[in-house]
Computed example of a mutant assay.
Amino acid sequence: MTEERLTRRLVVRLLALAVAMFCFGVFVLPPFYDAMCQAFGINGKTASAYEGSQTVNEKREVRVQFLATNAADMVWEFRAQADELEVHPGASNEMVFVAYNPTDQPMTAQAVPSVSPSRAAAYFHKTECFCFTQQVLQPGERIKMPVRFIVDRDLPADVRHLTLAYTLFDITASKPPVAQATLTRAAP
């Protein structure tokens, strides 16, 4: 075989490999990841946007615990105002998380939620959450960030405790914040 033909053959094989890797990443990996998370009870994803209204089950209480952690490179102070709440399924609830940027630079952060046990995550409906948007804090700024949620009345009866955990990631490098001075507008 000629060198040109060998080169062409190598390029075709490399392109086929690239297409196969793309297909694996798009079509195979996400369901595999979801199955692994469900099997090991990690990274419980909450139910999608909740549109319904439910009657409140006053006879049942569910304890919801709140955890706030920082990713390895995040320097903000981040915590929930309370460690837990006792809630009635079907009732609207709120917990406030507090974030503080102790640095001398503006920073952008993104919170990633997780609910455990993972089988109960589909029954946890966030109606408003700071995790839906990126948070920008100026140097020394402290903000209160509410999360409003409903624990579904159809939560399995044996589930009496849920944990809503947030991990806060520094995404300043990929989404640089706008400094506060540039936000002021000139008077007309």
Rank of each mutant, 00 (worst) to 15 (best):
E3R: 14
Y123D: 08
A99I: 15
L10K: 12
A72N: 10
S114K: 02
R119M: 07
F78P: 10
T167A: 00
G140T: 10
E84L: 08
A18R: 12
L137S: 11
T108R: 12
A181C: 00
T184D: 10
V147W: 03
L29V: 01
N101I: 11
C131A: 13
S116M: 07
Q81I: 12
M145G: 04
R8P: 01
M145P: 11
R79G: 09
V115F: 02
V136P: 01
P146C: 09
G52S: 13
K144Y: 13
G44W: 04
F66V: 06
E128Y: 12
T55Y: 00
A49W: 12
Q38I: 03
N93M: 08
A91Y: 03
T182V: 04
A18C: 11
V64C: 03
D152I: 06
E86T: 10
A120Q: 00
P146F: 11
Y50K: 01
I150Q: 08
S92Q: 11
A71R: 03
H161Y: 12
N70Y: 02
V96H: 12
T55I: 03
E51H: 14
R153V: 13
V62R: 03
C131N: 05
F124E: 03
P30T: 05
A181T: 12
S53C: 02
A80E: 06
V151S: 02
L164R: 09
A35L: 14
P30K: 13
A80D: 06
S116T: 15
Q54G: 02
F78W: 15
N93Y: 06
T127F: 01
L183W: 06
K45S: 12
M74T: 13
A35W: 15
P106Y: 00
F169R: 04
A39M: 05
L6K: 10
G140P: 10
E86V: 14
D73A: 11
L67K: 12
